[in-house]
Design a protein around this nucleic acid. Sequence first.
DNA 1: AATCAAATAATCATATACGATCTTGTCCAT
DNA 2: ATGGACAAGATCGTATATGATTATTTGATT
Lengths: 194, 194
Amino acid sequence: MGGLLRGEVEPGSWLRQDDLAGQLGVSKIPVREALQRLAGLGLLRFESNRGVVLPELSAAEAEENYALRRGIEPQMLERALPRLSIVDFAEAELALEADGLSLTEANWAFHRALYRSSGWERGLSMAEILHVAVAPYVVLYTEYLGGGTDSDAEHAALLEACRRGDTEAASALLLGHLDHAQQALVGFLEAKES
Amino acid sequence: MGGLLRGEVEPGSWLRQDDLAGQLGVSKIPVREALQRLAGLGLLRFESNRGVVLPELSAAEAEENYALRRGIEPQMLERALPRLSIVDFAEAELALEADGLSLTEANWAFHRALYRSSGWERGLSMAEILHVAVAPYVVLYTEYLGGGTDSDAEHAALLEACRRGDTEAASALLLGHLDHAQQALVGFLEAKES
DNA sequence: AATCAAATAATCATATACGATCTTGTCCAT
DNA sequence: ATGGACAAGATCGTATATGATTATTTGATT
């Protein structure tokens, strides 16, 4: 299941309930319930009498994804900024070093560390969904095409602005970061679609 | 299940699986799966070995709710505005008359009509969740305390701005509408909490 | 009368079983 | 060879049944 956040499940692939049940050593019932939860999150789709599929993401949907992130993440950051603790900074720092974490896991761990003190449970959950939804494509984009190296620099700059308590700068850096990531991924997907 | 959108289920109440199964004439398995989907949407909470409960909403969570709506709904409205068709206007108009619809159902039907042409499936689903989450309290607030009469006027003004194709005005009216609704509901909840 | 313990009842969570639906392979006709 | 009808296999969706956990009642003791 964590494979979803790691972007390891290929979009368009079918999740066989008996297989998952076997791997986990349980019956299909709890497996199906977990899959329904993920379907509620919008990460999977049930197709009647055919099973569960990981939906593919169009360029337009990726664009929507980042637009929604721009709508909610800066609010969370601004709200969290004055309350950020040394623990939050340490967690963000650790995510930048990214030991033992996949690229997409580290990505979300970094952002979450900066947002968590906002106290917005629903916003955090929505942001996580948006991160997970693009994970397989971010993996594709960065690992196969060598993109995303400037993402690290942007993360570092954002963290630094947060350390200074500079709300204006941090908010602007986050928006720019999201713009860049959107541009890269949407471009990648548009090329792939044509 | 639609009872959730109508705000008819009391927050804090437990949803008995056998009862629901009996009402629907099915076994508990599909009922539990549907509840898991709603739990994935964040509308219900499973408590281990105790069942499913409709969570209560704090004033802080209501504040978050409206902040998230301000983050995503204006984007959807601006994107949908140039593509709004006569069908969308008719649907919004019908929702204002609200025949056969509960207050909260009509509310969401109106907003959805104005957002749908944005083509943002995920954004629509997120907005709907945010609407449903406050539904029981909006019902409480309006039916028991006679509030929300200015909401109708704001809806009408917003629809008129959309008809004129005035993006600026529509966006501003929507933000103001959300601010008013937030103020009213958060105030109500804060009074209730103390 | 109040309190605690144990028994009873209610409810949950999941394994098993089975009919329904979809997929795949085979065979025949063209 | 190609296409279509049929059969065999795989997979899904849910009813039933059962052990586990929690809630409620009962009854004894102080």
